[in-house]
Simulated assay, not measured.
Amino acid sequence: MKVIFAGTPEFAAVALQALHEAGFDIPLVLTQPDRPAGRGMQLQPSAVKQYAVKHGIEVLQPLSLRMDAKDPQRAAEAKAAHERLLATDYDVMVVAAYGLILPRSTLDIKPCLNIHGSLLPRWRGAAPIHRAIESGDAETGVTIMEMEEGLDTGPMLLIERTPITPQDTTATLHDKLAAMGAEMMVKVLRKMEKGVVEAVPQPEQGVTYANKILKEEAVLDFAQSARDISRKIRAFNPFPGAHGEVNGTVIKLWGAEVLDGGSNAAPGQVIAADAHHGIVVACGEGALRLTQLQKPGGKRLPAAEFIKGFPLDGQRFE
């Protein structure tokens, strides 16, 4: 099969690599334009573009695929991309975390398959991995689905599950699901080659939406339960990084353990900060032992190392 691939971040690059190594003919890759990144804010190619260029695959980076875009430049790039797709000999488009909406004009050319990091119809939308952890889901997985104009509403071709462990962060779960999704897409395309793949409509029950993560969500409220705060810390690792404030200094929290039992201390109060107990903070319900922290301009440090340079005994997270 000849496969056009559309994707942008590392999650997508893992799938592109799997398809390429499986021997599929990939005549064209679509990815988002290079973006400024790093301290120097130099333009950086996406992970997908880096892989494609390294392996001699043609790359197209339109600002939009919507030919009716109000911005003339976006509309012109979309028209050029549409004409390029029409001129390309391919059987299917595979989409993984592309970041651009595929309009009807694109979906109508050839079948479009999507790698989605959730057990659809739960967590349709932009941030399924974050929201699954934040909500305390016991499991998640990957769904390979046919794309249509609705938001992640298309029929399912393959679904596989994996547990969410108490140690999983968005970073670790991302890597698991990226590998799963890549293997699953290879399986689906092999079935398509043989004409034995079956599409199943999504259930009407259990629909939830994984809204895009906003930076302000990462500000922790210690009046919440220790369990809820712990989930947020794991869900927002690595982005945007859950944090609290101590005496005007923003402290990012990268790891925490839930401690059962009550405390008379006010939420956010540091009730221990020493080598023996670690850093323990009172919450609205229960307490948290913080295990990895980071101050502005510093590195992520284990709690014992962090308090050597930033004493927290008697302080309070506001």
Rank of each mutant, 00 (worst) to 15 (best):
residue 240 P to L: 02
residue 219 V to N: 13
residue 229 I to P: 01
residue 223 A to H: 15
residue 229 I to Q: 05
residue 221 D to M: 02
residue 250 V to C: 13
residue 226 A to L: 06
residue 243 H to S: 00
residue 234 R to W: 01
residue 237 N to C: 12
residue 231 R to V: 05
residue 228 D to S: 10
residue 221 D to W: 07
residue 228 D to R: 12
residue 252 K to N: 05
residue 218 A to T: 08
residue 237 N to K: 04
residue 222 F to M: 04
residue 241 G to S: 13
residue 232 K to R: 08
residue 240 P to H: 04
residue 233 I to E: 05
residue 228 D to N: 07
residue 236 F to A: 01
residue 233 I to Q: 07
residue 252 K to T: 09
residue 242 A to E: 00
residue 250 V to I: 15
residue 234 R to F: 04
residue 224 Q to H: 12
residue 238 P to R: 02
residue 252 K to V: 03
residue 240 P to W: 05
residue 224 Q to N: 11
residue 239 F to R: 15
residue 247 N to A: 15
residue 229 I to T: 02
residue 246 V to I: 15
residue 244 G to N: 12
residue 225 S to M: 14
residue 224 Q to L: 11
residue 252 K to M: 12
residue 225 S to G: 13
residue 252 K to D: 13
residue 234 R to H: 05
residue 218 A to H: 14
residue 226 A to P: 01
residue 230 S to E: 14
residue 251 I to Y: 05
residue 238 P to S: 09
residue 237 N to Q: 10
residue 240 P to D: 11
residue 242 A to D: 05
residue 248 G to T: 02
residue 217 E to Y: 12
residue 239 F to P: 04
residue 221 D to F: 07
residue 228 D to M: 04
residue 222 F to C: 03
residue 238 P to A: 01
residue 219 V to K: 15
residue 223 A to V: 12
residue 250 V to M: 13
residue 229 I to S: 02
residue 243 H to G: 01
residue 217 E to M: 15
residue 236 F to L: 11
residue 218 A to N: 12
residue 230 S to T: 13
residue 220 L to K: 06
residue 230 S to A: 13
residue 229 I to E: 02
residue 246 V to N: 09
residue 233 I to A: 05
residue 243 H to R: 08
residue 235 A to G: 09
residue 239 F to S: 14
residue 246 V to Y: 14
residue 218 A to V: 12
residue 238 P to G: 05
residue 246 V to M: 11
residue 237 N to M: 11
residue 224 Q to E: 14
residue 239 F to N: 10
residue 242 A to R: 07
residue 224 Q to D: 10
residue 250 V to F: 09
residue 245 E to L: 11
residue 231 R to K: 02
residue 222 F to Q: 08
residue 246 V to K: 06
residue 240 P to R: 04
residue 244 G to A: 08
residue 230 S to I: 09
residue 234 R to S: 11
residue 230 S to V: 10
residue 234 R to Q: 09
residue 252 K to G: 00
residue 232 K to M: 14
residue 246 V to T: 14
residue 247 N to H: 10
residue 243 H to Q: 04
residue 249 T to C: 10
residue 251 I to G: 04
residue 252 K to I: 05
residue 226 A to G: 04
residue 222 F to T: 09
residue 237 N to R: 11
residue 231 R to Y: 02
residue 226 A to C: 01
residue 227 R to P: 00
residue 232 K to P: 05
residue 247 N to E: 15
residue 245 E to F: 12
residue 230 S to K: 09
residue 232 K to E: 02
residue 239 F to Y: 15
residue 237 N to S: 14
residue 242 A to H: 02
residue 248 G to F: 02
residue 228 D to P: 02
residue 235 A to M: 13
residue 238 P to V: 02
residue 240 P to S: 10
residue 234 R to L: 09
residue 220 L to H: 06
